[in-house]
């Protein structure tokens, strides 16, 4: 199983204001706020922690299907590019990649390298981005599994969790897009 999340840093700069009063308190624990304060680049650290929480939440709801919004309770610990996120008794490993354009996190139950494929979109149209991401995902999966695309069936659960099925097998996948960037990961 895999959960991923990408943050387009330019989009985050324009669309969110992390310095507004109470913003950090709503999302981040005391320890996480210390990471942010001590960081050379607080802005990037804010979005790194956010993407870790999102990726972990996406993984968590695959195991516990229920939607909710409680990012502060997904508690992050970070060291270099790796991190651990805990929520109640749930715990996962998160790898993060930071570039000048985006922050990308990928959560798994066992420690693993970051595998997400990143796409840059010219257009911010969400529907178009979803279609393109899905197409790239299906191509990649078809190649990895050596199975024709026509045999793969893409599904989205009521909670919004995507998966692909073939021959009665189900593969968990994760898709994310924000601003001009998108990424997909295969749970194989």
């Amino acid at each position: 199983m895999v959960g991923n999340d990408i943050v387009d840093l330019k989009e985050a700069q324009n669309a969110s204001s992390w310095q507004r009063p109470r913003f950090l308190d709503k999302l981040f624990t005391d320890i996480e706020q210390t990471y942010i304060e001590n960081s050379n680049n607080p802005f990037t650290t804010v979005w790194r922690l956010w993407s870790m929480k999102e990726a972990a939440y996406k993984l968590f709801i695959q195991q516990n299907p229920d939607r909710f919004y409680n990012p502060k309770k997904f508690e992050c610990r970070i060291e270099k590019n790796s991190g651990i996120v805990k929520f109640q008794t749930f715990r996962c490993y998160v790898e993060t990649k930071i570039t000048s354009d985006y922050v990308l996190s990928e959560a798994r139950c066992i420690q693993n390298n970051l595998t997400s494929e990143v796409l840059k979109f010219e257009d911010k149209n969400q529907k178009m981005q979803s279609v393109m991401l899905k197409r790239m995902l299906m191509n990649a999966l078809s190649e990895t599994l050596k199975i024709p695309k026509t045999a793969l069936i893409f599904r989205v659960s009521k909670l919004g969790t995507p998966s692909v099925s073939y021959n009665n097998k189900i593969i968990n996948v994760s898709l994310t897009h924000h601003g001009n960037y998108g990424a997909f990961a295969l749970g194989v």
Binding site: A15, R20, R22, F23, K26, L27, F68, Y69, N70, P71
Partner: peptide, 28 residues
């Protein structure tokens, strides 16, 4: 989802209230 927190803060400002974590949980 990154903007949900902005909406929560805007609601707090607009109605002059404070929302706790538990309140936010179902704000979907």
């Amino acid at each position: 989802s990154a903007n949900l927190v902005d909406i929560i803060l805007d609601i707090e400002d607009e109605f002059d209230i404070r929302l706790e974590n538990e309140d936010m949980e179902q704000m979907l």
